[in-house]
Design a binder for these strands. Structure first.
Lengths: 342, 342
DNA sequence: CAACATAGGGACATATTAGGTCCCGTATTT
DNA sequence: AAATACGGGACCTAATATGTCCCTATGTTG
């Protein structure tokens, strides 16, 4: 397969571009269906007419169905989309990219999804799906899974296939942070647990509380118990954020944010802020998984994409050689860029 | 590979046409190099400008080199051409075609080359090459190879790779026929023998002689010896011709030709004329391999292409289940046409 | 039930590209 | 030295791709 595609890239590169274009269209229809021509063309950054021409073609091929309510992939279309993914994967030589990033970051494995999640929302969904598929394989009887909040992890949960597990426990890696209920660790925990028919426990802790109250809460028997189980997680799924964005989203005061940034914080993950060297220089006043526990977790899966996350991804060093990173093409290229120019 | 191509046919069917076009161009450059743009466009039945555009593209891809003397394939170009062949092969599902024809003719194997040798001279060369590659594999120590004349067999010899064999003997299957020295069995025999570093013997017999003289010659010790070895051939390569064409080329009188045709002769091979039912109804007054010997030869390879040869191919029944046919797409389709409509 | 938003498809002007044709300077052959 | 065949420049035209706007149907919402 690789050989055929290599030859084709040499002899009919225009067709390969066309292939990618149609793949993008199929993918976008799939993730937004039922969707209209105009919103699709916006989503894809393509002219309305060109989308129309392509859709007409795809309709003739029996891959999309066009209803007055919008366009939908047919069964065939879904099948082709699935198979196209593999082709796109080989075409862009992601295998090679993955290995490169994996070696640069000195982690266990990197999984790269085509595209740029900043520009194309479906890429984030693909990342979630890729991550979910990976995680699915390592869940076993008795697994204790902990996860953080955030849009990326939310996509992992959303795209998690419904499976039946035995004796699995899902926990939030941190107490509730942020206002958006949909992407809070607690919500995601409950949703994931339902999807995989697992048990779950939650951590209800208010945001930005004083250190004293925090300590009091942490000593509550119920909370304490969860924190203890948490430290025994054998699978942690967490998103990586930029320090500037996350500090704002967490509602920190401008002064605090300034201080944080001036100290060199560039990344945030499971409540910790990291500087460029990967040192944890600040901890969100909240309860949850301990930084030093993370090192010993058997499976640590980070998820983050988009060019602007590259620096944060590099900075987030959990010093766990078992870490797996799920990211997108844009971030991967930028990571290589940064680390190679050093 | 088959799967990838199947998906691509669904999602980018335009690809196939383009791929074939560029394949044709590469192939034609290869077989005519160094060749100019104009003669190429004539050869390909394509506009001068379109050839130019494509050649410019191929030049940019580093597949052809453009000199003031003409265009030449680069090393890369040759490699790609070779690999494209396989893709074209799978794309057109020749495997399937081959099996169909093989079953219809009830022979051992059919090898089909893309295109139509009537319209495109390079197809004949490809047939020769395909045949040569097949033959190369079955030659072994002590092989006795016999071959006829004709343009098709000439291409087999021309495209035979230079190899070193041990104790191989090459013989003409018949005494010299036709005026064109280049394609006489004797010439081909000598040429093939040189290419594979084998020994060879020749049969110098004048054309269209009286039966008496023929018998006298056949009893010459030297000739007799060769005829004896000939009957022990373990590999026969022969071309198949149309009865009407061959009788003319052999210089038969109009009366003789008329008689032959009215008796139903449609095919000619190694000096015998066959009717539609595959019965040998006439023998050229010349010496050479015996029809009844052919049945017992271990490897019999026939080569013939072009739509108008289809009938002759069907008619040439040597009743040897070991026969292998090398032909082209046009002939193969026509064979199926004829035999299916019956 | 009516107003509205959004769907696909028709129609057409325009930008872009592909293709046909002819010519020219140059290098090679005769 | 003349003739031939080469690639490449130039330019016109045909074909195609794309942008734009409008129309009618169909769900949705107040």
């Amino acid at each position: 397969m690789k050989k055929v595609l290599a030859i084709q890239q040499k002899i009919i590169p225009e067709m390969i571009e066309l292939l990618k274009k149609r793949y993008e269209i199929l993918k976008n229809i799939y993730y937004n269906q039922p969707v209209g021509r105009r919103s699709l063309s916006q989503e894809l950054n393509l002219g309305e007419r060109i989308v129309r021409t392509e859709v007409e073609f795809l309709k003739n091929q029996g891959l999309v169905e066009v209803n007055p309510i919008g366009m939908v992939l047919t069964r065939d279309g879904e099948k082709i989309l699935e198979e196209l993914k593999e082709i796109i994967y080989v075409l862009n030589d992601y295998k090679h990219l993955e290995e490169k990033v994996q070696k640069l970051l000195k982690i266990k494995r990197v999984i790269i999804v085509p595209g740029d999640s900043e520009k194309d929302k479906t890429v984030l969904k693909e990342m979630g799906r890729a991550c979910a598929n990976y995680v699915k394989e390592i869940i076993h009887e008795g697994s204790i899974i902990s996860l953080t909040g955030g849009t990326s992890v939310a996509q992992v949960v959303e795209n998690f296939p419904r499976i039946v597990t035995k004796d699995v426990l899902v926990l939030p890696a941190r107490g509730g942070i942020g206002r958006d209920v949909e992407i809070q660790a607690n919500t995601l925990t409950a949703n994931l647990a339902k999807k995989i028919s697992a048990n779950y426990r939650l951590l209800h802790v208010p945001d930005n509380i004083s250190l004293e109250t925090l300590e009091t809460i942490a000593n509550e028997p119920e909370v304490k118990e969860i924190l203890e189980i948490l430290s025994k997680s054998d699978l942690l799924i967490f998103g990586i954020g930029r320090a500037d964005e996350m500090s704002k989203r967490r509602g920190m005061s401008p002064q605090q944010i300034n201080e944080l940034i001036s100290k060199g914080a560039v990344a945030e993950a499971f409540g910790y802020y990291f500087n460029k060297s990967g040192e944890a220089i600040f901890r969100t006043p909240s309860i949850g998984i301990n930084f030093y526990d993370v090192k010993n977790i058997k499976n640590v899966v980070a998820i983050a994409g988009g060019k602007n996350k590259a620096e944060a991804i590099i900075a987030t060093k959990v010093n766990n050689p078992n870490m797996v990173l799920v990211t997108d093409e844009a971030a991967a290229n930028e990571i290589i860029n940064i680390l190679h120019s050093k």
